[in-house]
């Protein structure tokens, strides 16, 4: 072997032990820039508007006509609100926007090549970007979940809601709603990250998945399992009826749904790693 290649190999060997430390440093550097872009970049405005939507809507409704007439109704009221608006709309489209733009946005801005021209494994890049998207979406949408639940409970029934949280199942329910939000960000995030890598116009697959998730209650039990929402619904602390036409399926237990979702996410991220490893920079054709 010649001297240059040998030197590089030695360099690599020398750093092999410190590879994890190097990758962590690189991920941290990627996180720093990506979080800045996610929270303060030109594309963040849409996510903020989306996140503010349920809060604004709740404040408006609670001011005009409170959602529940008594404390006992509030868990169901919030469950319906969470399921239909926060989870299926805000978290879904919020994740779509954040994660698709991690790579697609850079292609549009013609800045992805700077990463590709750095001495960083592309798999490390995928990890850094995914974690940045995850942190952004979890911070935003968990906050939305908590704030919305507090508004629903505390806007009119302060003393009974206090009892519900401190002496009843309130905190446990809040924990599960936040956990579902985080899992939704994990699952949808991985899906949309890959979509952003494979598809030039990711809106179409996003809408297709949106439709699939919405008709999930009509699907036969086997098909229900090929979705993110089925596993998340299984975790909802206050189940709500899906209507007279819903096909009833046994909810998947948490010990299956949570690791299952994480395993599928890991597989999807491996697919993203494979894809980005072969990716070319051809901004003109993108």
């Amino acid at each position: 072997m010649s001297s240059t290649a040998e030197t590089i190999q030695k360099k690599t060997e020398a750093t092999n032990g410190a590879n994890v430390s190097l990758w962590l440093r690189q991920i941290s550097a990627i996180l720093r820039l990506e979080l800045k872009k996610n929270f303060f970049g030109k594309r963040s405005l849409l996510v903020y508007l989306l996140a503010m939507m349920p809060i604004g809507l709740l404040i408006m409704v609670e001011t005009i006509n409170p959602l529940g007439r008594e404390t006992a109704q509030l868990p169901t009221v919030f469950s319906i609100f969470y399921n239909s608006l926060i989870l299926r709309t805000v978290v879904f489209f919020g994740c779509a926007w954040i994660f698709m733009n991690l790579f697609r946005g850079e292609i549009v801005d013609r800045s992805l090549h700077y990463y590709f021209l750095s001495s960083v494994r592309r798999e490390v890049l995928v990890t850094g970007k995914y974690v940045s998207g995850l942190l952004t979406s979890v911070i935003l949408f968990s906050t939305v979940t908590v704030v919305c639940m507090l508004i629903v409970f505390f806007s009119h029934f302060y003393s009974s809601s206090t009892r519900f949280f401190f002496d009843g199942p309130g905190f446990s329910q809040l924990f599960w709603y936040v956990a579902i939000t985080i899992l939704a960000c994990v699952g949808y995030g991985a899906f949309f990250l890959v979509v952003g890598l494979f598809v030039r116009n990711p809106i179409i697959p996003a809408l297709m998945l949106y439709g699939w998730e919405w008709i999930n209650f009509l699907l036969p039990p086997l098909l229900k399992k090929i979705s993110v929402i089925h596993y998340l619904n299984s975790l909802v602390p206050v189940p709500v009826s899906e209507g007279p036409f819903a096909v009833v399926a046994e909810p998947t237990p948490a010990w299956i749904s949570i690791p299952g979702l994480l395993i599928v996410t890991a597989l999807v991220l491996i697919l993203a790693g494979t894809r980005i490893h072969r990716m070319e920079i051809r901004y003109g054709s993108d």
Binding site: K37, L117, S119, V120
Partner: peptide, 20 residues
């Protein structure tokens, strides 16, 4: 990429930079 970009630098024609 991990090995080669320890040894290689590329000044491309893409005139774009991170915003701000």
């Amino acid at each position: 990429s991990e090995a080669i970009f320890q040894e290689l630098g590329y000044c491309s024609q893409f005139d774009s930079f991170p915003r701000g």
